[in-house]
Design a protein around this nucleic acid. Sequence first.
DNA 1: AATACGGGGAA
DNA 2: TTCCCAGTATT
Length: 349
Amino acid sequence: MAFQQELTRWYLANKRNLPWRHTQDPYVIWLSEIILQQTRVEQGLPYFNRFLEAYPAVSDFAAASETEILKLWQGLGYYSRGRNMLFTARQIMDLYDGVFPVSYKDLIKLKGVGEYTAAAISSFSSGEAKAVLDGNVFRVLARYFGISTPINSTAGKKQFSELAQSLIDQEDPALYNQAIMEFGALQCKPKSPDCEVCPLVLSCYAKNNKLIPVLPVKLKTVKVKTRYINYFICEQDNTVLVNKRILEDIWQHLYDFPRIETAAEAAVNHEEFTQEVKQKFGADVIIRPLMEMKHLLTHQIIYVQFFALDNYIVNFNMSTEANWVTWPDLDQLPQPKILTKFINFYFNK
DNA sequence: AATACGGGGAA
DNA sequence: TTCCCAGTATT
């Protein structure tokens, strides 16, 4: 039996029951696809349900505020996805009269929609025969056909893209796209795939040549950088000083506390650090260390220290928007995971 | 072509 | 620890 038929047969017998598979509504599919970018199904699922409940149609999404969207997005990461979605939702109301596009050609123009997502939405919502190419597809194709071109190289993307497009089932592209991705996610897993029960095992190049641990090949990527962020808790009349990250690197448009970033671990007995704090919060400031945390991102290791300040003066020019808010109000604002963790600990939750 | 952008789960 | 997840935008 052909590669495609084996995949769809396997899919029909083994697929998970996922909510976005019961619709052809391009808005709902868009919602699911953006949420699932670089995100496991189990992690994205609750977010999908909450978003769909809050915004049943693209018009509802477009009417929301950015803070609302980011608050719902909190904890999911890659926050530009949420901001781009709001931009796109509003654009669809304005330019497309609220009608969500379904063709690859139109979808690819939308902010936050790249080749993968345009192929996914167009095939699932309108049956357009555009092959999806995500991490799962790369892996299945690399192993089955024995392709060792690095998947994150320009040549590799071209080669895999052409192969994927040549394989897509013209009769039911949606079914085939779903099938190959689900197969990669559940069966042809990155580590220890279930080759014993694989319907394609006899014709799998990687399996026959002991290349399962080698394929797909991926070029070594970025060095992780280490940084040290020191947060200051300034309380006053049941409020705390918070800061909106406007032009910052990570966590754009989320809220955190005033901070000083240092080149190394900061310490209260370190002259340079205390001088910098005094420069910012006044010479009489008292610095009380609260706790240290380590926060891991894909590309950064962040050592975070929290300090409580007393006798401070807030007369400095904060580079970003600063506000006094109550703790319950801060809870309503979108914030980085590390802050949520700290606040929970701080209040002994 | 390379880098930035989160957070979590599996081995 | 290391890898990588239903990737995209920017440099």
